[in-house]
Design a protein around this nucleic acid. Structure first.
Lengths: 108, 108
DNA sequence: ACCGCTATACGGTATCACTGAGTAGTGGGA
DNA sequence: TCCCACTACTCAGTGATACCGTATAGCGGT
């Protein structure tokens, strides 16, 4: 697949929110999850910048726990603001994709 | 609707390509068309920057014609490279939206 | 001792949509 | 007549985001 970078702007963060919303998890695992979901080229560094942004914007709760098989992990869960942001993301995605699909079908 | 700016990255240019592909047209009319398609907040300046980029990247043919009711218009049509780029855009959109929808449905 | 896998952080880059200001042609109302 | 609205395009600058490269570090196997 061609480069999706530009198209992912705004949506990748939503995907990360959705993954965190479905279960408490951490950066490295989120990256692997995105990869197996078909976001094949998304790399750790990208996910970590998103996670730090989410934390800075107060959308997640963070707990650090030892791993046993490597360095400690930072586990993320959504707080109320995060859940609200996630709902907004899906509303925006729904809105956008419906317009795009309409355009594709000839736009009447 | 909330701000779609970030989500439009990469897709708005594709929308403009699609509109040009369906009929020869010009910037101001493209903006109006996008607005009536539901891209309500897209403004002239944004469309003109996209059009100049398309021209610079050699994806369109441009003809200037007098208008009669205002300044002359620059009419755009897709060339072969433009049609190829448009096909790529739809392939990428298809790819992305299918992954996002899968994620939304629980991502199995 | 080295390598690979796991795990995170961070400065710098490119791209894109957007903003704001400027230029310009036409026609209508005060 | 003069101003305003609508039409129509250009361009320099801004902000947000994904991405890249590099660095640090724990753990297990050879």
């Amino acid at each position: 697949m061609d480069d999706l970078t530009e198209m992912l702007k705004g949506t990748l963060e939503g995907c990360v929110l959705e993954i965190i919303g479905s279960e408490e998890t951490y950066g490295y695992a989120i990256t692997r999850r995105l990869n197996e979901l078909g976001f094949a080229d998304v790399i750790e560094g990208t996910v970590y910048t998103i996670l730090l942004r989410l934390e800075r914007n107060g959308l997640v709760q963070v707990v650090k726990r030892p791993s046993g098989i490597g360095p400690p992990r930072k586990f993320y869960t959504l707080n109320d603001a995060g859940r609200e942001e996630l709902a907004k993301f899906w509303a925006k995605w729904q809105y956008l994709s419906s317009r795009i699909d309409r355009l594709k079908e000839g736009g009447r």
